[in-house]
Design a protein around this nucleic acid. Structure first.
Length: 465
RNA sequence: GUCCCCAUCGUCUAGAGGCCUAGGACACCUCCCUUUCACGGAGGCGACCGGGGUUCGAAUCCCCGUGGGGACGCCA
């Protein structure tokens, strides 16, 4: 039996970080076992589903590189099939019409809650041998309910949480078709998982409560029961549940915020799953290692600091040409590139070591491409009357020296010796003049890369007598 | 309220009864490297929720508490 997994988001919002991890684990599990990963869009909630959300999910999957073998399948396009199955169940007596109005149901729920009971449908329209049903009201379009077993237990061995048993007494007859005839979530999932041959359902643990209902439905349909693995949720950086206002941003927001998909993927893989002490690994390595035995059963808190560290790691180690490709558009947003400028890959070679964010990296190197604003505090601290004569004499040397790192360094050393200043006394003001701030890589390397013309023009500002 | 799930450093985690004086990573601190800031290197700080069992032996198994979370929709 080949493994078939699926990711089944409802298009009511972005692909957020929790959904992305669920997708990642499902994807990896299929890859690991040489099976198929299926994307299914659960869009039966017509009121809340939007094409924009569908696109956002597709974009997120694409950015992360989570490719699917089949799909995307849209549930709205399978309506006929669902209705067919509902009719079969009606005919087989495993489902029935219920004419209770919403108001009636609300009142029932209310009174049960008051009495300290779990709110459940009381089965007033459930046909039973020997039971006399009320007359169907003319003005209430009926819903279809599943005739859930009333005794016994439903149990499954969850691949993450272990054995879970629920008494059928806890369950009620869930609605599988609305009054307008459209099928509901639990029913569509069951039909789809069944007909798409899903062998492993890997999903968020907010679905644990749906599982016994789905298993009962599957049994009523004589369908194979898949394996279930329920992943615990991801909490925000502050330990709070992710929500619209609480960092539940789209994965695409991470792209916008300067993160590499490699870093996000690696981070997510390690959040709730482990392979001994391994922290940094590629997706192909992950797909070889991934299993359901090493998934943590408890919720995990998102940690941006660690993501930053991983992001830095991938920025430092990735192919430099590819890095340049990614940084270029971010740089363009900050500065218009001049006709003549240092090669981006050369600049990145000098700067990637100190970066852990693509946007920050682009901002940090912008001074190579335009005259930077000078930080006043840094200027006042380092560009002093005391050092100006030395800078002026260096300027003259730079006009004619060979334009190589060693030669530039020699010129600075010579200036240092002649002026009897310490090296930093000369290097720091240069930094500020050239980069605008007091921190940069080796000043000689920066100058070399920047080019003689730019260096002389930026230093020259301070050399007018 | 009812049902279900969860519980190791601040955070992510290793841990399948003796390998645990509880390991790694991020963060933090110190030192080294150094031409500033980073990077890198070497150290350091820091945890088994509480109580009972079971056992020669428990972070690991069981029970009870406590705390946290989820679910109880004609949402998914």
């Amino acid at each position: 039996m080949t493994v078939r997994t699926r990711f089944a988001p409802s298009p009511t919002g972005y692909l957020h970080i929790g959904g992305a991890r669920t997708a990642l684990f499902s994807w990896a599990y299929a890859k690991k076992h040489g099976g198929q990963f299926i994307l299914r869009i659960e869009d039966t909630d017509v009121a809340r589903s939007t094409p924009e959300a569908v696109q956002a999910i597709l974009d997120g999957m694409h950015w992360l590189g989570l490719d699917y073998d089949e799909g995307p399948f849209y549930q709205m396009r399978r309506m006929d099939r669902y209705k067919q199955v509902i009719q079969q169940m009606l005919d087989a007596g495993t489902a029935y019409y219920c004419y209770s109005s919403r108001e009636e149901l609300d009142a029932l729920r209310e009174s049960q809650m008051q009495a300290g009971l779990k709110p459940r449908y009381d089965g007033r329209w459930r046909p039973e041998t020997g039971k006399v049903l009320p007359n169907a009201p003319k003005d209430v379009p009926p819903v279809v309910r599943f005739k859930n077993p009333q005794a016994g237990i439903v149990a499954w061995d969850d691949m993450v949480k272990g054995r879970i048993e629920i008494s059928n007494e806890e369950l009620d007859d869930l609605i599988i078709a609305r009054a307008d005839g459209t099928p509901t979530y639990n029913f569509c999932v069951v039909v789809d998982d069944w007909e798409m041959g899903i062998t492993h359902v890997i999903r968020g643990d907010d679905h644990v409560n749906n599982t016994p209902r789905q298993i009962n439905l599957l049994k009523a349909l004589n369908a194979q029961i898949p394996q279930y693995a329920h992943l615990s949720m991801i909490l925000g950086d502050d330990g709070q549940k992710l929500s619209k206002r609480h960092g539940a941003v789209s994965v695409m927001q991470y792209d916008e915020d300067g993160y590499l998909p490699e870093a996000v993927l690696n981070y997510l893989a390690r959040l709730g799953w482990s392979h001994g002490d391994d922290e940094v690994f590629s997706m192909s390595q992950f797909c070889q290692w991934f299993d359901l035995d090493h998934i943590t059963a408890s919720a995990a808190q998102f940690n941006t600091e660690k993501l930053n560290w991983l992001n830095g790691h991938y920025i430092k180690t990735m192919d430099i040409d590819k890095l340049a490709e990614i940084v270029a558009p971010r740089l363009s947003k900050i500065v218009a590139l001049p006709a003549v400028h240092p090669k981006l890959t050369d600049v990145l070679a000098l700067y990637r070591e100190r970066a852990n964010n693509l946007n920050q990296l682009a901002a940090d190197i912008a001074y190579f491409f335009h005259a930077p604003p000078i930080n006043q505090a840094d200027a006042e601290k380092h560009i002093t009357l005391e050092v100006l004569p030395a800078i002026q004499s260096l300027y003259v040397k730079l006009e004619s020296c060979e334009w190589a790192v060693e030669a530039i360094n020699a010129a600075i050393q010579e200036t240092v010796a002649q002026s009897q200043l310490k090296f930093p006394k000369v290097a720091m003001p240069l930094r500020v003049m050239l980069t605008g701030i007091a921190q940069s890589p080796s000043i000689d390397a920066v100058m070399h890369l920047m080019g003689r013309e730019t260096v002389l023009s930026r230093v020259g500002v301070y050399c007018k007598i």
